[in-house]
Simulated scan of single mutants.
Amino acid sequence: MPSKAIRHALTKLEAACLDAALDEGPIEDVLDTPRMYLVRAAKAVDGFRLGGPAPLGGVQLVSKLQKELAGLLAQLDGCLPRMSVEKQHGTTSRAVLANIVAAVPGMLDDAKALDPYMSPLAMFD
C-alpha cells in the first residue's frame, strides 16, 4: 500500500492521543508523543509522491491532509506553556486530544484514497 507510512503514523497518533488523555504528568511530557506522531504524519503526507502529471484529485487530497494536520498541530502547540499567547483561547489539552482522535478516521480514509494517485517510481523509495 502506497499510503502505508501515512496510515501507520495516523494510527500511532490516535493511540498516543488516547494514552496521553489518561496521563496526569506535566503537559509537556503528556503531549510529547502525540506531537511526535502528528509531525511524522505530516512529514509522511509531505513525502507522498504523486504520479505525474499530478492528478487533480491526488493534489486535493494531499492538500486537505496537509491543512488538517497543520491545524491539529497548531491546536496541540497552543496547549503548551511556551505558547502562552495561543493558550489564552481556553483550549485544554484533553479537548485537543479528543479533536485529534475524532479527526483520525477521516484522515485515514483520505490516506487510503491516495493509493491510486501514487507515482509508479515511489515503490523504489
Rank of each mutant, 00 (worst) to 15 (best):
Val59Trp: 01
Ser84Gly: 04
Ala103Gln: 09
Ala95Tyr: 02
Ala20Glu: 05
Tyr37His: 15
Glu86Asp: 12
Gly47Met: 07
Leu31Ile: 08
Gly58Ser: 10
Val45Arg: 05
Met36Ser: 13
Pro105Leu: 08
Lys4Trp: 10
Pro105His: 05
Ser63Cys: 03
Gly58Pro: 06
Thr11Val: 05
Gly57Arg: 06
Leu80Trp: 01
Pro81Leu: 04
Leu38Ser: 04
Glu24Thr: 15
Lys43Met: 13
Arg7Ile: 13
Leu18His: 14
Pro2Ser: 12
Val85Ala: 12
Val59Ala: 13
His89Val: 02
Pro34Tyr: 06
Pro26Thr: 12
Asp109Gly: 12
Ser3Lys: 09
Cys17Asn: 08
Pro26Met: 13
Arg82Cys: 01
Arg94Ala: 07
Thr91Arg: 15
Glu86Gly: 08
Cys17Met: 02
Gln75Arg: 05
Pro120Cys: 06
Glu24Leu: 15
Lys67Gln: 14
Ile100Asp: 03
Val104Thr: 09
Ser84Arg: 11
Ile100Thr: 14
Leu73Lys: 14
Ala102Glu: 15
Gly58Cys: 11
Ala122Glu: 15
Gln60Asp: 15
Ala103Gly: 07
Ala9Thr: 04
Asp115Tyr: 03
Lys87Gly: 10
Ala103Cys: 09
Glu86Met: 12
Val39Ala: 11
Leu114Cys: 02
Asp32Pro: 01
Pro55Trp: 01
Cys17Pro: 02
Leu13Val: 04
Cys17Gln: 04
Gln66His: 10
Arg7Met: 14
Arg94Met: 01
Glu28Asp: 14
Val85Thr: 11
Val45Thr: 12
Leu97Ile: 07
Ser84Tyr: 11
Phe48Gly: 12
Gly47Cys: 03
Ala102Asn: 14
Leu80Gln: 13
Gly71His: 08
Val45Cys: 06
Ala74Gly: 12
Ala98Val: 07
Ser84Leu: 10
Gly90Phe: 08
Asp125Ser: 12
Leu18Ser: 13
Ile27Ser: 10
Val96Asp: 03
Arg94Phe: 01
Met83Gly: 00
Gly90Pro: 07
Gln66Met: 02
Ala111Arg: 03
Ala54Pro: 02
Ala5Phe: 03
Leu65His: 02
Leu56Thr: 13
Met1Lys: 11
Ala111Lys: 05
Asp29Ile: 03
Leu108Arg: 14
Leu69Thr: 09
Ala74Asn: 12
Ser63Gln: 11
Ala70Tyr: 03
Gly52Asp: 10
Gly90Asp: 05
Ala111Thr: 10
Gln75Gly: 05
Ala44Ser: 15
Ser119His: 06
Pro120Tyr: 07
Leu108Cys: 03
Asp46Met: 02
Met118Tyr: 00
Met107Cys: 11
Phe48Asp: 04
Val62His: 00
Asp29His: 07
Lys4Thr: 14
Asp110Cys: 09
Ser119Phe: 06
Ala44Pro: 05
Ala5Gln: 10
Ala20Trp: 03
Leu50Gln: 11
Ala74Ser: 14
Ser119Gln: 03
Leu22Pro: 03
Met36Gly: 04
Lys12Ser: 11
His8Arg: 08
Leu50Lys: 09
Gly51Val: 12
Thr33Glu: 15
Gly58Trp: 10
Thr92His: 01
Arg35Tyr: 08
Leu76Asp: 00
Ala122Asn: 11
Pro53Asn: 13
Met118Gly: 04
Leu76Ser: 06
Ala21Phe: 01
Gly90His: 05
Ala41Ile: 09
Glu24Asp: 15
Ser93Pro: 01
Val30Tyr: 06
Leu56Asp: 08
Ala16His: 02
Met36Gln: 14
